[in-house]
Computed example of a mutant assay.
Amino acid sequence: MKTVVITGGTDGMGKALALTYLRRGEQVVVIGTNARKGQAVLDAATELGADRRIEFIQADLSLLAENRRVIDQIASTHQAVDALVLGARYFRATRFVTTEGFEANFALFYLSRYLFGHGLMAQLDQAAAPVILDLAGPGGELSRIRWDDLQFAQGYNPDEVMGQCGKLSDLLAVAFTRRYPATRVRYVLLHPGLTATGFTGEYDAASAELVERMRERGQPIEAALVRILRHLDNPPTAPLTAFMQDNPIDVHGGPFDSAAADRLSELTSKLLR
């Protein structure tokens, strides 16, 4: 029986993926902020007769302390983690700083991914074919990174913030594979395509109108699941791969620059200290 951990697992693609694995007979840990949505996943698992194979952990992953609490809880109860799906994100039309002093998107979309990947490394290494799947937007130029203002203290723009977080995920993956050259863990960056999910977040009027149009144009969740499961069921042979829908992205070019990845890793270590 596999163990699958999903951040952002109570909504949209994360929830659909969790229920897919439960139907297959696997064990699933879902992490989400909303207790009501978490209970809905638990209820769906009960209907499938899988209530003993589902675990919901309520946590706000924009808080570092919450990430560490959840990671410790998973590590203490699961010897091995076969798949770690990093899907938590939350759109904010206006800048919000957490009680720990971090811009919320930077904390949730980047720092949480950093903490989970490294924090569950021992459990991933115990699995037969471990894989980390980061649902981000791989590719794009390094120029979108505000190195001197990573948390958008000046000129906050939510679209630029989300774009930068996707780029930070790319560099996180590069640094991860460089840090663990001998690991069997495969790191996959994937944008499954515009999908008609919940688009959770806090929107102003203009953003809400745009999101509604995106929801209308988005592919069904089932179509995105096909792309996600392709990589989880058969992890690539290369340590790091990236895909925009079905199209592979070269992870050895400039956008995945190792020096930039090392720079980000060093900055992150300082922030976490």
Rank of each mutant, 00 (worst) to 15 (best):
A128N: 11
A88T: 12
Y90I: 10
G117C: 04
M121L: 13
L111D: 01
L150E: 04
G163L: 05
D134M: 09
A93R: 10
Q151H: 05
N157T: 14
H118D: 03
Y114G: 01
F116K: 00
L150W: 04
G155Y: 12
Q151A: 06
V161D: 13
L120R: 03
L108V: 03
Q123V: 06
I132P: 04
P138T: 11
A122M: 07
G101R: 09
L120A: 03
E160P: 04
Q123E: 08
D125I: 00
L135I: 04
K167P: 05
H118S: 02
M121P: 04
N105A: 12
C165I: 05
H118L: 08
G117Y: 00
R89Y: 12
A153C: 13
P158A: 13
M162E: 15
G137Q: 12
A136R: 03
A127M: 04
M162N: 14
V97Y: 07
Q154A: 14
E160F: 09
Y156M: 08
P138N: 12
E141V: 05
A104V: 13
T94G: 11
P130T: 13
E141G: 14
Q126R: 05
N105H: 08
I145Y: 10
Y90G: 11
R113H: 09
W147G: 05
L150M: 09
F106V: 06
L108I: 03
C165D: 08
S169N: 15
A88I: 11
V131Q: 08
G139D: 06
Y114D: 00
L133K: 04
G119W: 01
L135P: 00
G117K: 01
Y156G: 09
L133N: 02
S112V: 02
S112Q: 10
G101W: 07
N157P: 06
L133S: 01
D148W: 04
F91D: 09
Q123A: 08
A107P: 02
Y90H: 14
D148F: 02
A127G: 02
D148S: 09
Q123K: 03
A136V: 11
G140S: 10
F91N: 11
L171H: 13
D125M: 01
L142T: 08
Y110H: 01
L115H: 00
L120V: 06
D159M: 12
F152P: 04
D159H: 13
G140H: 06
G166I: 00
E141N: 07
G101P: 06
Q126F: 01
L168M: 14
R92M: 15
H118E: 03
V161M: 15
A107H: 02
G119V: 02
G155N: 15
A107W: 03
D148V: 05
K167T: 14
A88S: 15
A122N: 08
A88M: 14
Q151E: 14
D134E: 10
P130L: 11
L168K: 11
A127T: 01
G117M: 03
W147E: 06
R113W: 00
R89A: 15
L168E: 12
A136T: 14
L133M: 04
L108E: 01
